[in-house]
Design a protein around this nucleic acid. Structure first.
Lengths: 223, 223
DNA sequence: GACATGATGACACGTTGTGCCAAACAGGCG
DNA sequence: CGCCTGTTTGGCACAACGTGTCATCATGTC
């Protein structure tokens, strides 16, 4: 397998077929997460540009060179913690029935922002922390933007695929943006407050759901 | 006057009061534009990360050190070319009557994307070129995202100010995002095609206007 | 156990971005 | 005019970033 940094986006590539990841792959994924968490706590503590790539690498127990094999830039290190949700819900969307997917979005959005176990609660807590740090850290905002842009781009391809050739490309663009923004704005508003830092009270899901309803109400994929 | 790079965003700060800029200030603005254009043509030719900051500085006739006094990073150099429109239409919005500004958006959006003289046509041509370059250049995409994010952030403040204390903060957030996205998506779709590279046929204005109508139809600033 | 494949670490190197100081410059004021 | 003051600029040094390259080491296969 080619190394992680060559993937076209920050997040891991979607597997072509459903297969059990090999041991080495799981090790790599674990290392990647290890680095990501090490980076996140240090960024939160000192601000992203006061933290050296070397210190992150050291904390994660890898060499500097290896760090840069996992991530293109220092800031990208926290990418997986921010992108983990997007990959899964988009995979579910891609597997859904052909046709206008607008109707299935609310459910998928609610699902990805409502944690059902400890792992998902922890993931949302990382997101919450990172977004709070990013609020006054331009370097981290850049990562957040890239994650969202990657998400929007992937989403556009998926929607176009589902909707078929008849769909107006601009309408597809609008829908992809509306869905991505709904999640982004919901998460940002949630992170700006102090309540429900692990999402178990449903705050991010509720905000994002409302946002999607309002942003998408004027959009319809013509045939 | 403090130098340009200390401004909180890529674009120049909005003047507190209406005043004629002094000679030195106009010189600085001219130099900034000079650097921006030099950067834009080089980025388009070789790709952003094949161009050194030094070569941009040399082309613009300033030292490397001075280059970094005008821009925080190499990529930011093209920021003014992308942000010039946003600053002006937001200034107009800020000067409009208090209350729900939703109704005035379509006019302002049409105005900023419809060139009325050679200067504005040239500005749109720069935007067109940069967005086409950015399509397959991650480093430039980052600048574009930052410009849009800065725009959305400023817009949120302006809308909150106009709407007063009664407005729902999340609704304000949605409206700011809808307007910013409408312009962004309109410009991106326009730049993806080959027609109307200076916007005089009204393509970007039409696309963005349509986008705003659709994205904002479900939003209303409650009192 | 030998072998291929791919991950890791160490080193060198060009580039980025900043702190610091000295020279050039502009704009009042006596 | 000459002086003074504050600002812009350039040169230098330097830490950090990110990449190419190669040797080393682990994993899984035959």
């Amino acid at each position: 397998m080619s190394n992680v940094a060559t993937a076209r986006s920050i997040s891991r590539t979607l597997p072509d077929v459903e297969r059990t990841p090999t041991l080495t792959e799981r090790r790599k994924a674990a290392t990647q997460l290890e680095i990501a968490k090490a980076a996140a706590v240090r960024f939160a503590e000192h601000g992203a540009d006061q933290v050296t790539a070397e210190s992150i690498a050291a904390a994660a127990g890898v060499s500097l060179r290896t760090f840069y094999r996992y991530f293109r830039t220092k800031e990208d290190a926290v990418g997986p913690l921010l992108a983990v949700g997007a990959v899964t819900w988009q995979a579910a969307l891609a597997a859904s029935a052909p046709g206008d997917p607008t109707a299935v979005f609310p459910e998928l959005i609610a699902r990805v922002l409502t944690p059902v176990d400890d792992a998902e609660r922890e993931a949302l807590r990382w997101t919450h922390g990172l977004l709070r740090t990013a609020a006054d850290d331009p370097a981290l905002q850049t990562v957040w933007h890239r994650v969202n842009h990657d998400s929007e781009t992937r989403l556009r391809a998926i929607i176009a695929e589902l909707a078929g050739d008849g769909a107006d490309p601009f309408e597809v663009r609008l829908l992809a943006a509306a869905a991505t923004d709904a999640i982004r704005l919901g998460l940002e508003q949630w992170a700006a407050g102090d309540e429900d830092p692990d999402g178990s009270a449903g705050v991010p899901a509720a905000l994002a759901g409302r946002a999607f309803a309002q942003l998408s109400s004027g959009i319809s994929l013509g045939a």
